[in-house]
Amino acid sequence: MSLQSMTGFARRDGAHEGCTWHWELRSVNNRGLDVRLRLPSGYEALEAKVRERLTKAISRGSVNANLSLTRRAQTADITVNQAALDRVLAIATRLAKEIGAEPPRAEALLALKGVLDVADDADDPVAEADEQAAVLASLDAALSDLVAARRDEGRRLTEVLTRQIDEIARLSHSVEVAPARSVEAIRARLAEQVARLMETGQSFDPARLHQEAVMLATRADVEEELKRLNAHVEAARALLRDGGAVGRKLDFLAQEFNREANTLTSKAADQDIARSGLALKVVIDQLREQVQNIE
């Protein structure tokens, strides 16, 4: 299973019997799953079904789903109220004879209230259900596109993370084989420090001086940090191989990497080791930044 990014975009258009629409889905990184919907008025009943589909397909990220819909104007059923028209026509004809006016015009009669009955098409439950099914079908297609986009971005991030983890391993190895960590180098460094102390003319207990030298060498040793760094490298590589929703685990490992790099740098008694420690911290910061986008 490959890694998935939390970043993606998808759009799908649809149409059904005079109604057209398009879905837009956008997702970015987030600590958990945050779904935000924007549906047109009258489609509130779809919200539960839309949320159910999104939460099944995506486990982490901030997801915005927007449905824009345009409906063709509905035709109206117009009928003539014949009884009302007959009464109005009779009255108008009688008045025209009495006052010598022109006979009533058809458009004037039709404009009178009650002569024409205008009825909107009644809602058809079956047609409404068919339309909602079509809208949800296009959502499913858009959601598949979004998951594919997140997966494609996840593959790119996997390559970046792999290079960064390899660089952490390389820098750790450079510290591990640094000449300054050899027994001879440590002995020479301690001898130099002791000689500098002896030049002050003060007297020191040789046994106590030996103990202090051993403690100093122990505190400067980074063997444990290197072992933990190597263990974290193997754990991170295993997570990349396994894939899936491992973003939180990788984030935790990145924090552990940073902790060991800080300790290693603070213990460094040699410039080369200190430089490697600083380079480690830079790469680990870059790793932590990329990991924030992993689901």
Rank of each mutant, 00 (worst) to 15 (best):
D77V: 10
L89D: 08
I273G: 04
L239T: 06
D13V: 01
N230M: 04
Q271L: 05
S182K: 08
G277M: 01
A119W: 02
A111C: 03
L37T: 08
L33E: 06
L33H: 01
I294V: 13
R219S: 14
V63K: 02
G277V: 03
A111N: 12
R60S: 05
A231Q: 01
R181M: 10
G201C: 11
Q292P: 03
Q255D: 13
R163Q: 10
A231W: 01
L39Q: 12
A106P: 00
L3P: 00
A279S: 13
A108V: 10
Q286H: 10
E52M: 13
H232W: 08
R259H: 14
E98S: 13
L3E: 02
A213S: 02
R151C: 11
V177P: 02
A65K: 07
G244E: 04
L146C: 09
R189W: 15
F9C: 12
V283G: 03
K281I: 09
A90N: 06
V214A: 13
A142Y: 08
I284E: 05
E128S: 14
E225Q: 10
I58N: 00
A57K: 00
G277W: 01
H16V: 04
K249D: 04
K113C: 12
R189S: 15
S172M: 02
R248L: 10
L89H: 07
N262C: 02
Y43Q: 03
A148D: 09
A57Q: 08
V115E: 08
A57I: 01
V233S: 06
L136H: 06
R288S: 12
I168D: 09
R11A: 15
V147Y: 05
N262F: 03
S27P: 00
R259M: 05
L280C: 08
V115D: 09
A185F: 08
S182Q: 09
R12K: 13
A238Q: 08
P40A: 05
L250A: 01
L278E: 05
E167Y: 11
I99A: 05
V246N: 01
A10Q: 03
L226A: 14
L37V: 00
A235M: 11
R196W: 06
V160Y: 08
Q4W: 00
E212S: 06
F204K: 10
A96W: 14
L197I: 06
E98I: 11
V282Q: 02
D145G: 04
G154N: 05
D272W: 01
R288P: 06
R26V: 06
V233G: 04
P103N: 14
L109K: 00
N29E: 04
V283Q: 03
E44V: 05
T265R: 01
G61V: 04
L209T: 09
A213Y: 01
D242A: 07
C19T: 15
Y43D: 12
S2H: 04
D123I: 05
A207K: 10
K267I: 00
D117V: 14
S59F: 03
S182Y: 00
K227N: 14
D285E: 14
E176N: 15
